[in-house]
């Protein structure tokens, strides 16, 4: 039964004047759909199309030219390295946090959940800034780090740390509600049948949450590769060294090199589309197990 039939059925038994009040006329329906489409078209669709239109404005050769720049290649490499560190780090944390929160009862649980969500509430600029305060030259560990010749701010470790911070809650917040809802009966049964803790986790818990886990990881990945504000504060913008893809886009754009800026940006836009596609597929899988 489609949603439409669900909505139609009870109304059809009502008197005509009541039907008219409950079910909006076709006119209202299409008016609302047109308003929504125009709004989304202006605010979401046109910006998306613009990225690709501007990238290919001067043809395919110019488009690919943007990627032969060594600085662009270095930026892509740094972004991949950052994501490859940030995602596993937050994935392991997400699994540990959801296991302890969803499988056990202890006081202060809600406070812990709020604290995990905290990085989402903090402006990206401030997220980067706290690491500058901590590791920067004027910061707490700054003098000691300088003495031992360890660079964190304006270097790759700072970028990785800031990225881990802004993507911190993604995996945990997908897993916790789902695991709380599922309860622990299946795990208890597995333990009762003699499975070890690890085996229970691998064979029972993980298969039960695999889609939510994947969902959290792709959201985490999209943010890790696309983070701009926090990374911009800690990076120092050294071309070819501490520029990620979004920072490289900014530099090209500010140099009025629009085609190259949008060409590199189109990589990120493509990643965003891929993320949305995977997300839709996962949601479909949830509804049709």
């Amino acid at each position: 039964m489609t949603d439409n039939e669900l909505i139609k059925l009870p109304v059809d038994y009502l008197p005509v004047h009541v039907q008219a009040s409950v079910r909006e006329t076709g006119l209202v329906k299409w008016l609302l759909i047109i308003i929504s489409t125009l709004f989304l078209g202006f605010f979401l669709f046109i910006p998306l199309i613009t990225v690709f239109a501007e990238a290919f404005r001067k043809g395919i050769a110019e488009y690919f030219n943007a990627f032969s720049d060594p600085a662009a290649i270095a930026a892509i490499r740094l972004t991949l390295i950052t994501a490859l560190i940030a995602i596993p780090a937050n994935l392991i944390f997400g699994l540990a946090a959801s296991w302890s929160i969803a499988r056990f009862n202890f006081p202060g649980k809600n406070i812990l959940i709020t604290l995990i969500d905290l990085p989402f509430a903090i402006s990206p600029v401030i997220s980067g800034f706290i690491f500058v305060l901590f590791f920067g030259l004027q910061g707490w560990l700054g003098p000691w780090l300088a003495e031992n010749d360890i660079k964190i701010i304006f270097a790759i470790p700072g970028i990785v740390l800031a990225t881990i911070f802004v993507t911190f809650p993604f995996v945990a917040r997908e897993l916790i509600p789902l695991m709380q809802e599922q309860g622990n009966e299946e795990e208890q049964a597995a333990m009762l049948l003699g499975a070890s803790g690890w085996k229970t986790f691998w064979k029972v818990t993980l298969p039960n949450v695999k889609w939510a886990l994947l969902y959290g990881v792709i959201l985490c990945n999209a943010r890790a590769m696309g983070e701009f504000g926090a990374v911009s504060v800690v990076s120092g913008h050294i071309r070819g060294k501490t520029n990620t893809i979004p920072l490289h886009v900014e530099i090209l754009y500010n140099e009025y090199n629009f085609v190259a800026a949008f060409a590199v940006a189109s990589l990120l836009a493509f990643l965003a589309l891929l993320t949305l596609a995977v997300k839709s597929i996962i949601e479909w899988k949830y509804k049709h197990p």
Binding site: P47, A222, M225, G226, F228, Y253, A265, A272, L276
Partner: peptide, 21 residues
């Protein structure tokens, strides 16, 4: 699916796209 675009599109990309438009 399109509604989630602002979550998925990096802010710098939406920034330069909106500015251009």
């Amino acid at each position: 699916a399109l509604v989630d675009l602002p979550f998925a599109l990096p802010t710098a990309v939406s920034g330069i796209a909106l500015t251009t438009i």
